[in-house]
């Protein structure tokens, strides 16, 4: 029941990615903190949001481009960590590796989901065309809200199923891993952050942008040294 309720909230958050508002509440940084607060640990939710935020930031939803559904992957990852964390408390590094890789799989499958929703929306378009040709202006509102409802239900189902499969997978696989893998995985979080930073740096390729990056680094170091 709790998973269903949190999937509803997850679905609502992911809806912000394209269909409703687009005010950034679907971004991992925000959704991680919100879900963390709802699940009892804002700091953990935020930490996961920080880790996942940069992984997809360089993917621009330009025109009809199909980009990874990173926001969906992040929501699933955060819920999954909260479900698993008490169960395998001795494996934080392994959990991070597993959950980030799982979030990436979900984000890739999310592209298929969005494609399905966008194809499904052709049905609502056709109904709207027919309705308007018959003089029914209200059809536009009905089709818009019906499409939103379908989109939302698809997302809730995607979150629910992904978390459930992830939970079953993690429960089965993680205890089978040798304990020393936890030690082996100790650098993975920094590699993921490095990849995220490297991917995001592609936004700043212009020569004139080099100086503010350098300035930011200097100011950052001064703050860290002084505090």
């Amino acid at each position: 029941m709790e998973l269903f309720l949190i999937s509803l909230i997850g679905g609502l958050l992911v809806l912000d990615t394209t269909a409703v508002l687009q005010v950034l509440i679907s971004q991992p940084l925000v959704s991680g903190a919100l879900l963390g607060w709802l699940l009892g640990d804002v700091s953990l939710g935020l930490r996961l949001g920080i880790l996942l935020q940069l992984l997809w930031l360089n993917q621009l939803p330009v025109g009809a481009a199909k980009v990874p559904e990173g926001n969906l992957g992040a929501v699933v990852a955060v819920i999954l960590v909260f479900m698993v964390k008490d169960w395998i408390p001795i494996y934080p590094n392994i959990l991070i590796v597993s959950v980030v890789l799982y979030a990436m799989i979900v984000s890739a499958l999310g592209v298929k989901l969005v494609t399905t929703i966008r194809n499904q929306n052709i049905f609502f378009l056709d109904r709207a065309v027919k309705g308007l040709e018959a003089g029914d202006v209200a059809i536009l509102g009905r089709m818009t809200f019906l499409a939103l409802l379908f989109h939302f239900l698809f997302l809730v189902a995607a979150v629910f199923i992904s978390v459930w499969i992830g939970w079953e997978l993690f429960r089965f696989l993680l205890p089978k891993l040798p304990v020393h893998w936890e030690y082996v995985a100790r650098y993975v979080e920094f590699a993921i952050m490095g990849s995220g930073v490297g991917l995001t740096l592609n936004f700043f390729k212009e020569k004139r942008i080099g100086l503010p990056i350098l300035l930011g680094m200097i100011v950052g170091m001064v703050i860290l040294v002084l505090l």
């Binding site: 930073v197 350098l214 300035l215 930011g216 100011v219």
Partner: peptide, 8 residues
């Protein structure tokens, strides 16, 4: 760019 530098 400035914030990117601070993050790095």
């Amino acid at each position: 760019a400035f914030f990117m530098g601070m993050i790095i």
